[in-house]
Design a protein around this nucleic acid. Structure first.
Lengths: 256, 256
DNA sequence: AACAAATGCGTCACAGTGACGCAAATATAC
DNA sequence: GTATATTTGCGTCACTGTGACGCATTTGTT
């Protein structure tokens, strides 16, 4: 399984589709690096991807959006299904037994253990959110925190693999994914945008060539303001042209 | 649900993961056009994508490969998962009731109807097979036939949408998918290869530019033989360089 | 014999790309 | 205060890939 939202979830197992869950790789950008949102049950040792189950009369995309709202408070977020993880060994029964017991259930509670300890499929989604707008919904049962993408601990089940797969998926489609538009605040510098691309691609990009390419795409426009304070020379701020962005998405024109 | 392999399947429902199935969009190339493999129960009116269920201790990829073997006799085929179809309304209960009755089951048979008439997820796979090597496994209960991609009838459930989604998916990744290598026989003409790309892209390509581009990729090599008989002038035959092809896949170099 | 269709080979202009140069602005070290 | 490192803004240059298209040749059809 992958990620109930507290003890209620397991107890209400019969409301959900059996044997299937979803996990979200939620990306944010802050202080020059990409972040991923993770959560952890206070009773359990490992961090997990924010996930959830699917109600019996609920579309999968809706379930994913619900999962996102429940962790970040954000709706209408860029959210895409990218893979179904369906190997038998992707979850471990002993790991799930441990989790179940720590959540306060006895292994002899058949209606729960039969539901929870079976083989689970998980639908992978990735999302881009504006870091500053997300309000992390931690509570007594669950911690929710951003982790630097370069500093992810060993996670529950195959969740490390799910993150890897999300990134390789994004990388291969980077030309048509509006990653910067979704991750950055309204005003941003081209260096910030470039770092996002460099992180996903895993390589340095030439600053001057990157700038030329971005500007020639015509989706960003230079503002009069400048961004000071950080490093050395003050740099120009840019903003996305929302209309041209919508046209680009609609017409399938490469975003980058 | 999507496609049992005869009456046995429904009767043995408890062997499979509930609520989830898989469907394969199997492409072939013959006589200048792309084909898709469809099958139909002799007792039922609509054609379907070849699909199947997943055994409780079986990886999803293995289940997809098993489905492919059962319809074409082919193993080790290029086969990729591309999407999970998870909308509540993707199947219709009345349509499935009809199918179930025509398969010889009564709606009052609870263990079957509860399993079969519930909401179903379906995992989409696409495959490329060499048309001439596939041996279609029709039998008394089921017909298996190639359909021209431009001549697909209205199918069971959302299977027309699944085909559309497969094509749009392939189109967006055409640069890194070895579609020609998998679909064509060992010796082929560049015109055949070009038709495949034109069909997927839905547009005409300039013959001379296409040829230049393919040859510059270095994955095909010209043979001494020529292909006669078809139209007018005899054309040169080409063949894929298997070693360079493997390197290209391994190193992630664009295939086209 | 004229014509249509397909192939093989080539040209040409243009846009995009990678690599890199250099001056100006700003913070830190001495 | 001066030197140095870092980052930004603007530009150059050579090369490649691409789209558009020309034209002779081969072969089947009328």
């Amino acid at each position: 399984m992958d990620e109930p939202t507290g003890k209620v979830t397991l107890a209400n197992a019969e409301e959900y589709c059996p044997g299937i869950s979803l996990d979200c790789v939620i990306f944010g950008f802050h202080e020059g690096s990409l972040k991923v949102l993770l959560n952890k049950f206070t009773t359990y040792s490992k961090w997990m991807l924010p996930g959830g189950f699917i109600y019996k009369e609920e579309d999968v995309d809706d379930a994913a959006a619900r999962t996102l709202v429940s962790r970040t408070g954000l709706a209408n977020v860029y959210l895409r299904q990218f893979y179904l993880f369906g190997d038998v060994k992707r979850t471990s029964i002993t790991e799930n037994e441990d989790l179940m017991v720590r959540q306060g259930f006895g292994l002899e509670e058949k209606h729960i253990s039969e539901w929870f300890l079976q083989r689970f499929f998980s639908i992978g989604y990735y999302a881009f959110v504006e870091y500053g707008k997300a309000t992390l919904q931690s509570n007594i049962d669950e911690n929710v925190t951003w982790f630097d993408l370069n500093d992810i601990p060993p996670l529950y089940a195959d969740h490390n693999c799910i993150i890897e797969k999300a990134i390789s998926n994004i990388r291969s489609q980077l030309n048509s994914i509006p990653i910067g538009y979704e991750l950055l605040p309204e005003k941003f510098t081209l260096t910030q945008l470039r770092i996002i691309y460099e992180t996903i691609l895993g390589e340095k990009l030439d600053r001057r060539n990157f700038q030329r390419k971005i500007l020639s795409a015509g989706l960003v426009c230079k503002l009069d303001e400048v961004y000071k304070k950080w490093g050395q020379k003050s740099s120009a701020l840019y903003s996305f042209d929302k209309q041209k962005y919508k046209d680009a998405i609609k017409n399938g024109i490469p975003v980058f």
